[in-house]
Design a protein around this nucleic acid. Structure first.
Lengths: 152, 152
DNA sequence: TGTTTCGAAACAACATAAGTTACATGATTT
DNA sequence: AAATCATGTAACTTATGTTGTTTCGAAACA
């Protein structure tokens, strides 16, 4: 399957919400992301459980952001969408008696854990406001632009 | 889908081959990994293309390692199995005009690229001999054992 | 000739995000 | 109260890629 884009999509939506007064309906958001409102509700449910957004039914209802963009990190959103497995490749999980396989798995586990730690550390260093501003990673290569308006 | 285990499996096989005189058949290897010989041939084909192993048909045939374990790094094998996408999560690829989505994608791309660089750097620092010896990562946490015999 | 072994094609199984349909629930407007 | 709007949820389908399996053919060897 292609890569999990829930994190990316939720970041996108939340920044829009942070720059928008009033609620956004699932339909509006779905059009923004070029997808289906049910997919939006499904994914946003995780954000609601964490208390980052609320949803209201009926006229004038929809989704509302409960925090400022400065208060939310990439790590928060990653966790809210279910902390999906970061890696598409990893050790085989046979747990056999073979010491060679054990050594291989130990090595891979260590290396991937280190990379994941770095990733989550970077996630925790970046707020949604930083992204909206065009800042990328504190110590990172920072290849993107600066100063960022909004629009669909 | 569950994680791609080709790298892990090939490391396992190659270390066995490094400690084994003569050829190993796909059937023997398949039993070692508890899978099917066709899967072995399919995956080992990448190693053969890189010149790390050869395969011979007929009686006494099978797979033979052409390099010493000291000469092969984790990175070599990762590339030989096709350099599969390391991450299961990533940016949405709509490439819209929306500057917010662009900023999100730029940030994620940067962060994931940094993590991947670290991963590949670690891969390049570890030889198959290191793994067999129980050494893990030069600068890493090194959580595994030391001194390593062989056996399936 | 017969057996071993790889090579390759073709297809099924499996897992998971994503897309879709359908209906129930609740809130607001008229 | 009725109509409308919007979320909540279940169920099913689609898409994608690794893995598993069957079935041939080709080559090497006894």
């Amino acid at each position: 399957m292609r890569q999990d884009s829930r994190l990316s999509r939720m970041l996108h939506v939340l920044i829009h919400m942070g720059h928008h007064d009033g609620a956004l309906t699932s339909d509006m958001i779905a059009k923004m992301l070029d997808t289906n409102p049910v997919v939006i509700r499904r994914t946003m449910a995780g954000l609601r459980e964490k208390g980052y957004v609320t949803s209201e039914k009926g006229h004038g209802g929809g989704w509302t952001l409960l925090h400022r963009l400065e208060e939310l990190t990439l790590l928060d959103i990653y966790r809210a969408v279910g902390e999906p497995s970061v890696f598409a490749v990893g050790p085989a999980y046979d747990m056999p008696g073979c010491v060679i396989e054990q050594a291989v798995n130990a090595t891979l586990t260590d290396v991937f854990a280190e990379a994941e730690q770095l990733l989550l550390k970077r996630f925790s260093d970046v707020t949604l406001a930083d992204i909206a501003r065009g800042f990328v990673v504190p110590g990172g290569p920072n290849a993107s632009g600066q100063g960022m308006a909004e629009e669909s």
